[in-house]
């Protein structure tokens, strides 16, 4: 760009500059991309994230007060798997992740198709669907726990209008977890939708024209073009919502606090409860288990879905 200027202007500075650009003592060219640029990010990441992650594997095997720890072997894990209140967390975490990501895929795809069609209020609808993504989870949690109240809640009043008897959605052990999962979908389907919109818009028009030439209708266009070719979007939505769903804490905590009883506890909320109760070793064991669950599911899923994507 400014090659002509630099030479004369820098004068004596050229010499170190050249040495920088050309060679080092070992004869390899000195890179213009010094590893020093990694340094600030690496220090923060290693100290604040990686060290605790690795140390967790040790502290999970101890009875721990933050100041001193006694090695107890696998006792914490045994507790976790033996006690009903703790074990239920696994099941709930999986149910929550599967339900939320499944619904986000289905609804996100439907909304994505709808909002890429020639709808006049497309822009408005896109904004409306996306906005909840940006609202704080605590605010959403509080609002919906009010809307879901048994007698006065808006949801039950609306259901009453069409003749359905609502129930105490969050106070009932059979519906609490699923209700929270549905609120999660309400809040998060906007991301799935915009990912699908981006995916659908990147499909070349030729494919749709080919269907039209063959006399296909809207269903054929969806079934044979949109659905298979938006696979990369599906892949992203599944991975993202699975990771989010398995780690979920704030919505559960603001809506049910794991209740009634322990019936809507997830692994993340159990980690918090055990931490509050001062069982630091047990809490950390929960963290290690969550780590194992997440990697045991996401890594194979990523591999499997990635292979399908490559095959396409």
């Amino acid at each position: 760009m400014t090659k002509q200027h630099a030479g004369p202007r820098t004068g004596p500075g050229v010499v170190p500059g050249k040495r920088h650009a050309r060679a080092r003592a070992d004869g390899r060219p000195r890179s213009a991309y010094p590893y020093a640029l990694y340094l600030p990010a690496a220090v923060v990441y290693l100290v604040i994230f990686l060290v605790p992650t690795v140390m967790a594997f040790y502290f999970a095997l101890t009875r721990w007060t933050l100041f001193d720890s006694t090695f107890v072997g696998l006792q914490n894990f045994r507790d976790f798997l033996a006690e009903q209140n703790l074990r239920i967390g696994f099941q709930n975490t999986l149910v929550y992740a599967v339900v939320t990501s499944g619904l986000k895929v289905v609804l996100g795809l439907l909304l994505g198709v709808l909002l890429t069609s020639k709808l006049r209020l497309r822009g408005f609808l896109r904004s409306v669907v996306f906005f909840p993504v940006l609202v704080s989870t605590v605010a959403v949690g509080i609002t919906f726990s009010v809307l879901l109240k048994p007698d006065t809640g808006l949801v039950n009043q609306a259901l009453g209008l069409v003749g359905i008897d609502g129930r105490d959605w969050l106070g009932d052990a059979t519906t609490a977890l699923l209700s929270v999962a549905l609120v999660d979908v309400w809040k998060g389907v906007g991301i799935a939708t915009v990912i699908y919109i981006a995916g659908i818009l990147s499909i070349p028009q030729d494919y749709y024209q080919a269907v039209a030439v063959d006399g296909g209708n809207a269903w054929h266009r969806f079934r044979h073009v949109t659905l298979p070719l938006s696979w990369p979007a599906t892949y992203s939505v599944i991975i993202l919502s699975f990771i989010g769903g398995l780690r979920t804490f704030d919505l559960i905590w603001t809506m049910t606090r794991g209740g009634p009883g322990f019936t809507s506890d997830t692994i993340a909320s159990i980690i918090y409860k055990q931490y509050q109760a001062g069982f630091y070793g047990l809490s950390t064991a929960g963290n290690v288990l969550l780590f194992l669950v997440v990697t045991a599911i996401v890594v194979p899923l990523n591999y499997f879905l990635g292979k399908r994507q490559a095959a396409l």
Binding site: F49, M55, A56, L66, I243, A268, N287, T295, V299
Partner: peptide
């Protein structure tokens, strides 16, 4: 570094050990 970036996206942070470290 690539591996660590992906790990950062997937791994849930270990809470109490982070408190201990801080």
């Amino acid at each position: 570094a690539n591996f660590l970036v992906l790990s950062g996206l997937i791994i849930p942070p270990a809470i109490v050990p982070t408190i201990w470290l801080l």
